[in-house]
Design a binder for these strands. Structure first.
Lengths: 215, 215
DNA sequence: TGGCTCAGCATGTGATCACAAATTTCCAAT
DNA sequence: ATTGGAAATTTGTGATCACATGCTGAGCCA
């Protein structure tokens, strides 16, 4: 086989691999400490080592994967200190994003967030950890997209990515049945146009889960 | 030539290339919009395309380089909106870092920061834009290292990296002769243990330069 | 039984090649 | 002179290979 016989829509192989791995990591579909090999990734996606290597490099650069001194890659196992830091970063960045989104959040957006939140509740009821993480991030991203701040959103997603495997471990352990109360507070603050309440609710939502884990 | 004849200290070629490029970009040694080629980078560093490609991938992932739709890489030319966002991120993250460093900032650290700040003043006097950026970042990093928050510091450095070429363009244009006043305020607040003043001074220092550019 | 060594294997790294697509160059036609 | 297009060159992509290193486990000795 030679290079890409790309006549149209086909994206670059390394990008396809990157996106697939990124989504799996962010949604918590891989456990912390899980090892990956370039040849293994290549086999999984039907490509050679080269695109697998490039995808892994990107993910390492984003902190989604850990590179051992010998070059082996694995999902990171975060220390409590690092979890606390990442939670603080989420709080800083996401509060700002929510604040910037507030003036632009019209009723259609709030309705959509309520729909997503009912999906979150469903995932909690089904004890579906991956589904919960996915819909929960969708809830947040839907709001933050309105902030029109792509660099900040990218930063927030990088943090989510680093927390992905850890969140899986957390919510996999957790035995909750009630949907997140803070999401309702966020929606209420949006409806009321109440910025201080919004900031408080986002900070609480973002910090709460991770505090249990690090505590 | 085959693989790395690495008997000891030699670092991986892709890592060496990555670090060199990263430093050059962060310090503003390349202009915004400057184009790079994999073969050119390889030639410059005496390696093949493979390590050059990996280094570039990492830098693209960190937002230090822009990847065109056809795969060409260049230094990004930031819009005013993006500059404003990145300045806001600097403010958020660096104020937090400074705040966390404050309780641990003893006299030896403050002395070192004063030394670095006199180097900053020297660079300003010499109209050395690259030297100014380098010593200015060194001033900030010296403080933030004391925060013991590696994930946050990495985030801050990623923002610096994205702003590198733009800062060069800014400070290259700027005709200043006075050293930054805010640095003196930062040092004074550290000496006094005055957290609110420190937060204010850092925010002002970090926001000021970029406001001119985006304005 | 427990620890040690060494062979075999798995794995990352870097060079090189073939190919497709994008970009540039150059020449002819108007 | 300017524009159009075709040829030539540059460039990124992905596959493959050789090699050095790290890891694993089987066999050995105490």
């Amino acid at each position: 086989m030679s290079a890409r016989p790309n006549t149209e829509v086909t994206a670059a192989a390394h990008d396809r691999v990157y996106r697939a791995l990124r989504t799996r990591i962010m949604h918590g579909e891989v456990a912390p400490g899980e090892a990956l090999t370039l040849r293994g990734i290549g086999r999984d996606f039907g490509v050679s080592m080269t695109p697998a290597r490039e995808a892994v490099r990107r993910l390492v650069a984003e902190g989604a994967l850990f590179l051992s001194s010998s070059g082996r890659v694995s999902t990171p196992e975060l220390s409590n200190e690092r979890i606390e830091e990442l939670a603080a970063l989420r709080a800083l960045i996401e509060v700002e994003l929510a604040s910037r989104a507030l003036p632009r959040a019209h009723m259609a957006l709030i309705d959509r967030m309520q729909d997503i939140n009912s999906n979150v509740a469903e995932m909690v009821a089904k004890r579906d950890a991956v589904g919960y993480i996915r819909t929960n991030l969708e809830f947040h991203r839907t709001l933050y997209l309105r902030a029109q701040a792509p660099a900040m959103l990218a930063m927030a997603e990088t943090v989510w990515l680093q927390l992905g495997p850890t969140m899986r471990a957390l919510y996999g352990r957790l035995r909750r049945t009630e949907p997140p109360q803070d999401h309702r507070l966020i929606i209420a603050a949006l409806k009321a146009g109440d910025e201080p309440s919004l900031r408080l609710a986002v900070r609480s939502d973002v910090t709460k889960g991770l505090r249990l884990l690090a505590g």
